[in-house]
Design a protein around this nucleic acid. Structure first.
Lengths: 199, 199, 199, 199
DNA sequence: GATGAATGAGATTTCATTCAT
DNA sequence: TATGAATGAAATCTCATTCAT
C-alpha cells in the first residue's frame, strides 16, 4: 500500500473534484480513476478500499486546513484574537477551495456511521484547537471562568459549521469571510466576563 | 395515495424504529414493511417512494416537535424566556424519544442533497420560530439591534444542534436538558446589549 | 428463502445445463438466470448465494441418484447382486443424463475446499450404501471377514468413479454400462473368500 | 523462456508451498513470487503463464515421483511384487512430502478442464507403469488373461487415489503406508486367476 | 385496498499479465 | 536478466419498485 507519490495526490484531488461535481453517492471508483487519469485498479495500490480513500481525502485536506489554521494562530497573542483568526481562517479556506467546501460541508456527511467515526477522529484535532483558545481566554480572564469547555466548544464549532453549511447550501451566493467579524463578536460576547443580563 | 389511516401511522413509526435500530443504510423498505406488519407493496399505497416516506417521517415527527414547542412558547412573555423554553423543549423532546433522537441527529443526515433539501423545508418552520424570538428580543431592547438575524439564528440553531448531536454520538450518556441553562446563558450573552468587550 | 416451486426446479436444471455446456468457471449467475428464464435477482429468492445454488444442484441430483439406487437395491437378495446393481445403476444413471455426468464427474470438482466439504456430506449417504453392502456380504460369508470396510469402500467407489470420469473425459465415446459386469467381477474377486494367492 | 536455473526451482517449490498453505484459489502469482523471493515479472521469464507454471509444478514433482517408483520397480521380479511396490511407493512418497500430498490430491484438482487435460498427459506415464505391471502379470499367468487392461488400471489407480485423497482429507491423521498391504491384497485378489465365485 | 414474487440495473474489487526501466 | 507499478476486464449480489392476483 503505497501512501505517497504523484498518483496518490492525483487520486485524492480527483476524488474531491468528482464528489463535489457529482455528489457522494454518484462518485464511483471508476469515475474517480478516470478523473485522476489512472486505471481503476491503481486506486487499490494506494488505498485499501473506497472507504479508505474517502477517509484519506478528509485526512489530507483537513490536515492542511488545520495546519494552516495552527500556523496563523501562532502569530496571535490573545484568545480573542485567536478566536477571530480561527473563524476567519475557517471561512477563508472554505472560500478558497470551492470543491472542498462542498465535499466537507455536504457530501462527506452522507456517509455511514463507521466512516463518520473515522472522520470524527480527524476533527478532534480541530476541536482541540478551539479548546486551547478557550483555556487561554479563561487564563487571560476574558472568558467567564465557570464556562463548560465542552459546551463552549460546541457553540463555537456549531455556529461556524452551521454558517458554513448554510453558505454552501445557498450556492456560495454571498461573501462568507465577510461574516467572520459579526460571528466572532457574538461568540466572544457569549463567552465574555460581563454583568449578567437581567432575566 | 392515502395520506391517513392506521397503516399510515404504523409505517411512519416502523420507519423510525427500523432506522434507529439498524441505521439509515440498513433500513430497506422490506424491513420497514415487516416491522409495520404490512406488505412491501402497501408502502407504495401511502407513499410515492422511499424518499417520500423518509421526508414524511421527518415531517410528521418534526411537525409534532415544533407544535409542542410553539405551544410552550405561547405562555412566555419575554424573548429571553422564550429562548430558554426553546432550548429546553428541544433537549427534553429529544430525551423523551430515544429513537427519534437517533434518527434526526444521525441517520437522516446521511441522505443525498435532494432529500436534505426537502428536510430543510420542514426545518424552516422551526427556524422561523427562532427568528421571531430574535425579533421580539430586539423590540424589547434586550438583544443588540444591529444583529444579523440570519447569523444569530445560525448561532442558536448551530449550537443547539451540535450539542444534541454530540449527546447522541456519546450514546445519550449524560443529561441533556441539564445543559439547557448553560447553553441559554451563553446564547443570551452573545446576543445581549452590553458594554462592548475591549479587544 | 423459498426452496420449492417451479422456478426452483427450473433454476437447478438451468444450472446443470449451463455448467455442462460452459464449464464451472464460465457459469455466471446471469447465464444461469437467462437459461432458466428468470431475472438474476430471482436466483437469490431461492438460494442464499451462488455456492448455495451449486450445493443444491448436487443435493437434488445426487439425492435422486441415490434414491433410485436404493430402490433398485431393495429388490436384490445377496450382497453380490447388490454390488452389481450399484455399479450398473451408477453407470446407467450417468449415461441417462449427459449433462449431469459432466457436472458431477468434472465440473463440480473444480470447487474450493468449502464447497467440496458440503458436497462430501451428500456423498456420505452413497458411501453408506456401499458400506451396508459390504457388511451384508460379510454376514453372508461371501466377503472376507477381515476386510477393512473403509478400504473396501474406497476400492469400490474409487474404481467406479475413476471409470466414470475416464468415460466422461473420453467424451462418452463408449458404452459405460457395458463395463459394469467386468468391473463388478473384479471388485467381487477382490473381496471374496478364496484361497490366498501365492506370492 | 528459461526452463532451468536456480530461480526456476525456487519458483516451483514456492508454488507448492503457497498452494499447500493457502489453497489453489488463494495462490496468486504475486504470492508465489514473494515466497520465491523474485519479482512478479520474473515468473514470466520462466513460465509462459500461470497455467504453465502449475503444469510445470505437476510435471516436475510427478516426474520425480514416477522416477523413484520406476527405480524401485526395477528390483522386483514378479508382477505381484511390483504392484505391492507401486502401492507402497505411492503412499510413502505422499507421506514423505506433506505439501505435495495436499497439492496433488486436493488443490490441483480444482482446475479447469484444460489444465486437468495437461495434467492428465503427465499422469499417463504413471498409468503406463501400471499397464506394464498388468501385462507382466498376465504373461506370468497370475492375472486373469481376459482382463480388460484399461479397467484393471482404473481399478488400481482409482483405489490408490481414492485412498490417498481420503487420507489427506482426514488431515493425514493415520498411517497411510500401513494400508498398502491390505490394498495390495484386495487388488491382487481382484485380478488373480482363481475359481469363479458362485453368484 | 392489500399482497409479495419478481425484476434488473449497477458498482467494488481482484489479479494475471505487461513493459519501461 | 530482473523488476514491480500499472493495467482493466469481469462478476456477484442488493433492493427499490411494479403489477397480477
Amino acid at each position: 500500500m503505497k501512501r505517497k507519490g504523484p498518483k496518490y495526490e492525483k487520486i485524492i484531488d480527483a476524488a474531491v473534484n468528482v464528489i463535489a461535481e457529482h455528489g457522494y453517492h454518484q462518485s464511483q471508483v471508476s469515475k474517480i480513476a478516470k478523473e485522476a487519469g489512472v486505471a481503476d485498479g491503481t486506486i487499490y495500490l494506494y488505498f485499501k478500499n473506497k472507504e479508505d480513500l474517502l477517509v484519506s481525502v478528509f485526512n489530507e485536506k483537513m490536515g492542511t486546513f488545520i495546519e494552516k489554521t495552527e500556523n496563523e494562530l501562532k502569530g496571535k497573542d490573545t484568545a480573542i484574537e485567536k478566536l477571530r483568526t480561527l473563524v476567519e481562517m475557517h471561512f477563508k479556506q472554505l472560500t478558497a477551495d470551492y470543491e472542498l467546501s462542498i465535499v466537507t460541508q455536504l457530501e462527506l456527511r452522507q456517509t455511514n456511521r463507521q466512516l463518520r467515526a473515522k472522520i470524527g477522529e480527524v476533527l478532534k484535532r480541530y476541536l482541540n484547537l478551539i479548546d486551547t483558545i478557550l483555556q487561554d481566554g479563561m487564563k487571560e480572564g476574558v472568558f467567564v471562568p465557570e464556562i463548560d469547555i465542552r459546551l463552549a466548544r460546541q457553540m463555537i464549532f456549531g455556529t461556524i459549521d452551521e454558517t458554513a453549511t448554510n453558505w454552501v447550501m445557498n450556492d456560495h451566493r454571498y461573501d462568507l469571510p465577510a461574516l467572520a467579524d459579526a460571528i466572532h463578536q457574538m461568540l466572544v460576547n457569549g463567552l465574555s466576563v460581563k454583568m449578567p443580563h437581567s432575566n
